[in-house]
Write a protein that binds this DNA or RNA. Structure first.
Lengths: 339, 339
DNA sequence: CTGAAAGCGCTAACAG
DNA sequence: CTGTTAGCGCTTTCAG
């Protein structure tokens, strides 16, 4: 359908020289006369010549494409990370191909297969929620194809990773709650096998200990990250004989569902229950009361992941780096009483 | 860095036959014996052979890549459309490369250039907010490269487009406000040269006429789609001698900013001012009061755009189709008083 | 200083 | 039924 693009051959013919001369002229090869060189370049510009990446790819075995697999495209967290990756990729002249796994391990494997066939040069991946078995990643490693994980990670001894400081963040939230008068602090977690889920749980437990609060298992809820199951978890918390006076959740979806559930129960935030989330600026300030939350450096996470990726492209050896990005607790209305 | 992948040559050598025999065997060419055919396929499977897309691309001049350019990656509307495009693309064995223009016309042109160099087979584009000049699109058309616009469109006589029924939606909102008692209905629009901006404005005006309301220019505000400028626009409305009793905005960002501004002025939604937005389910139900809003079939819009794209890939001629997707006004708390 | 030829992986037309 | 050859667009020896 598409018109054929101009090739070196076209330029060579019009100039009455050989293809290799044109190739060299375009790249300022010392062997080519300055004059001829100019002539070649001018004609190339005129004809709008750009090298055919497939020919180059064939020759050099490089596609300049990065495969990015995320649980989903529409969650702000992921799209923001992607935009960070995209930024750095562009700087290196690479293209990003994004494939959503829809939180399905099967889909994740399929995506990897497709992208391998497309000959991406490597992968940047955030595990699907379902993924608890890592053979498909092992295969990537086996094939010596660059791989970086972010946020939800595994195989840390073999694969570079970027995560947020979940443990410290959760611990900090607990402290913050305590300082603001909460004594019955609850946490709505995600699936156990998710690394971040565990880290945040551990930070929560440590935070309780730090504050001299006793751990009560009823206050440790969990959900599958869907709004519905998060609402259920919240509901269970609210129906406890001694409902919590402060709740934080593993991510935005969970926290928004919790907020809605609390409101529907006729309770109010922060008067009855304080609330803190892991969110981004936009969502946190859109709701009322504005949400105190741990801000992820999402775009930065994408940039760092891409950075690790290009480190890998350059030198596959060297021990894999694990980078932990600092988060920041931004205090807003949802966790501060009185005033 | 990456290990060389197995090629037809490897298979041919191991089997002691020629490359073309292998090529044929793999594709069940009638010329090849059933037995040999099996042997070839088995070895191919064993060695994990997959055809090199660059070799194929070189030969057939097809990359199976679609370039998608959107104003930004992180807005829910766009990421949702992208996921719709991605779905259909996958069905056709195509990959999607997304490039954000960041609402900048320069960036948009740059993206087009880069993607053309990467030899994408065509484009699906949503204009940047800044774009009021279309030479870069004309070039795509000139080169006979498939192009489809969605949401923010131009050159409708040459390019297939998918949009929401902005006019009807805006008109419907106006009626809805009127039926619920509003008499001073305001609209916060976007830049004039955006098609959707205009359509919605026209729908608004018609809606006023339908209801026998007089148009008052003070109630027609506009902004540049940023939260800040939307807040300013809202503020101007609130400071009018006769502030509106109902407001709707061109998109989510605008509406959320308006909601926040109204709240900060000590007014309440919907008691003092009713509010309706163009949003998605998630955002509309996260805020309080829950937002009445025109639901875009966003994912569907992506699917339809991709559908048009593949129509184009198959037959470049034929008059370009313009598809208008029906929206639905979902009534929630922000626009209904009393009870 | 420049051209010819080989090769990256693959298909297709042409021989045998 | 199978092999040879040419060619997609490009770089890179190797000759001149």
């Amino acid at each position: 359908m598409v018109k054929r693009r101009v090739s070196l051959k076209d330029i060579a013919e019009q100039l009455g020289v050989s293809i290799s001369t044109v190739s060299r002229g375009l790249r300022d090869h010392p062997d080519i006369g300055a004059e001829l060189c100019e002539k070649i370049k001018n004609l190339a510009r005129l004809l709008n010549y750009t090298p055919n990446p497939m020919a180059m790819g064939l020759l050099k075995q490089r596609t300049r494409m990065i495969g990015v697999i995320v649980p989903d495209l529409v969650t702000h967290f992921f799209s923001s990370v992607i935009s960070g990756i995209d930024e750095i990729a562009k700087e290196h002249g690479y293209f990003v191909i994004v494939s959503p796994s829809n939180e399905s391990c099967v889909k994740e494997k399929e995506n990897i297969k497709n992208l391998m066939q497309a000959r991406v040069e490597g992968f940047i991946i955030c595990l699907s929620q379902e993924t608890s078995e890592y053979s498909h990643f092992e295969e990537i490693i086996e094939a010596e194809i660059p791989l970086v994980f972010f946020d939800r990670v595994c195989l840390k001894d073999k694969v570079p990773t970027v995560v947020a400081d979940s443990y410290e963040a959760a611990r900090g939230i607990t402290h913050h709650f305590y300082k603001n008068g909460a004594r019955r602090i609850a946490y709505i977690s995600g699936p156990d096998y998710l690394g971040i889920s565990n880290e945040r749980r551990l930070g929560y437990l440590q935070g309780l200990t730090d504050c001299g609060l006793e751990f009560y298992s009823g206050y440790l809820e969990s959900c599958d990250l869907s709004p519905l199951s998060a609402a259920d978890a919240t509901s269970r918390l609210l129906h406890l004989p001694q409902p919590p006076d402060a709740i934080f959740g593993i991510n935005d979806t969970v926290v928004f569902a919790a907020m809605k559930q609390i409101r529907e129960s006729g309770l109010s935030v922060p008067a009855d229950i304080m609330l803190v989330g892991f969110t981004d600026e936009f969502h946190a300030t859109v709701v009322h009361p504005m949400l105190t939350s741990v801000m992820h450096p999402t775009k930065e996470m994408g940039r760092v992941a891409a950075g690790l990726f290009f480190d890998l492209i350059e030198t596959m050896d060297a021990a894999p780096k694990s980078i932990e990005l600092k988060t920041k607790l931004v205090v807003r209305e949802s966790s501060v009483r009185g005033k």
